[in-house]
Simulated scan of single mutants.
Amino acid sequence: MSERRILVVEDDEGIRKMIAFNLERAGFDVVEAADCHEGRVAVSDQRPDLILLDWMLPDQSGPEFARSMRRDEMTGEIPIIMLTARSLEDDKVRGFESGIDDYITKPFASRELIARIKAVMRRTSPAGRDDEVEAEGLVLNVASHRVLANGEPVDLGPTEFRMLRFFMTHQDRVYSRAQLLDQVWGGGVYVEERTVDVHILRLRKALAKHGFDKFVQTVRGAGYRFSVTGAS
């Protein structure tokens, strides 16, 4: 779990720092935001694996922020846990209707928070597991940072690894160069779109040694996709 990044959107600095401290002790990488605007910037730049979201924020409510995340194709799959002092059933229903994955009432123990985070991550992992995704004999393990092709190790650089991980967890969808830059490099990194082509070429070259380059497909005029369907 040490590579998982948590975004904490909480306007109370004392609470935010306490949560961040406990999460870092548990091995998470933590990004902090004091309001929804900072939260959106952090989502774009840091690409968190999960968002801890306060209900009452100065510029927008937590449920409104959650709904905006769910409407956006690029952020719709990020799990969200709502943190709030509201404990009424109607409030919980409103929270879940906004698209959140779990709801924790303040005050809460740090052990409970970490356990709930891990439970949500297990439920929302694209492959149903925390650390591993697989496609027709191609296996990517996040924890060990290894890729195996029919049991044989695939030699990938860090950028190619991130790109393959994104592709394997978002199969059969076409992504433009700009979208891949946002998802693989992050929104705050300024890289030319042609850089994507270079790393696609490197990824294909590494996979070609094992016969898996056919999964990384060019869609003329649109971008790239990863698909085992129709690959020959």
Rank of each mutant, 00 (worst) to 15 (best):
E38M: 09
D45Q: 02
R4A: 04
G186W: 02
K106D: 13
G62C: 10
G211C: 12
F21P: 02
D91V: 06
I78K: 03
A143W: 08
E193Y: 14
V147S: 03
S2R: 02
I81M: 08
K209P: 08
R16P: 06
M69Y: 05
K209Y: 09
A66C: 15
L164C: 06
L23W: 00
Q60V: 10
D54A: 15
M56K: 15
P63L: 15
D213Y: 04
D45C: 01
R194N: 07
A208R: 09
E73Q: 06
T124Y: 02
W55C: 10
I6H: 02
D91A: 12
G188W: 00
E152L: 09
T218W: 11
S44H: 11
E24G: 12
V120S: 05
G137T: 00
V41Q: 11
L57W: 10
D91P: 10
I15N: 11
A135C: 14
T159S: 05
V184C: 04
S98H: 05
D91I: 10
D155L: 12
G99F: 06
L88H: 13
G186M: 07
E10Q: 14
A231M: 09
F96L: 15
A33D: 01
F65G: 07
V9R: 02
D130P: 02
R173Q: 14
I104E: 01
L148T: 13
P153L: 13
S125L: 03
V174A: 04
R173S: 07
N150P: 07
P48C: 06
N150I: 10
Q179W: 04
F167M: 02
R94M: 11
I104T: 08
A135Q: 13
V154A: 08
F28Q: 01
T218V: 12
T84N: 11
Y175M: 02
F96W: 13
V120A: 06
G188H: 03
E89D: 12
F212E: 04
V174L: 06
F108D: 12
S2G: 03
E134Q: 14
F108W: 12
R202P: 05
G14H: 11
G76M: 09
D49S: 08
M168Q: 07
K118P: 04
R122H: 10
V93L: 10
E136A: 13
H37D: 15
E134L: 11
N150H: 15
V198L: 14
N141M: 06
I15E: 09
K209L: 15
V228P: 05
R165P: 05
Q217R: 08
A135W: 10
F166K: 00
D35M: 11
R47L: 00
Q179L: 11
D59A: 14
E97G: 12
V196E: 02
W185T: 01
E97Q: 15
V8P: 08
W185Y: 07
L23H: 04
F166E: 01
D155N: 13
R194M: 07
K209S: 14
E193A: 11
A109L: 09
L148I: 13
V133H: 03
N150S: 15
G230H: 06
D172F: 12
S144R: 13
S87R: 12
M163D: 03
A42D: 00
V9N: 00
V41K: 08
S2Q: 02
A20Q: 08
Q46Y: 02
